[in-house]
Amino acid sequence: MVKVGEIALKIAGRDAGQLCAVVDVVDDKFVLVDGLTRRKKCNLIHLEFLGSQAKIKKGAKTEEVRKALKEAGFDFKEPKEGEARDKKQKPVKIRKSLQKHLDKPEESKLDNKKESKIKKVVKKKTSSKKE
């Protein structure tokens, strides 16, 4: 019988070639597996056991399993989690004529009516930039 904590390599499917450990035993055919693979119910045929044990309890979390795998002497890189990337803030684009107006309002040839409009536009763009 398979015990909780046995370390295996997944040999089938999308996670093939990834290290994992048994977290829970479902029945005599299936186990719950976690580690570098996704946390999945897995057929024993799709696992190749490596004969070593990770010190984890039944139903351990992913982080605990990975820690235990490292303690058992398996080196691996932490897989990248799907964190949101840092969005590069795009520089606010303002029309050249408007930029001129902002820099030197005295020299610009734009009307007062337009000026109020321009200020609104610039406010919008700059406020979104700060956020």
Binding site: G17, G51, S52
Partner: peptide, 11 residues
């Protein structure tokens, strides 16, 4: 191929 890889990883 994966089974071969697993054999290489056995301690």
């Amino acid at each position: 191929v994966m089974v071969q890889k697993a054999k290489g990883m056995v301690k």
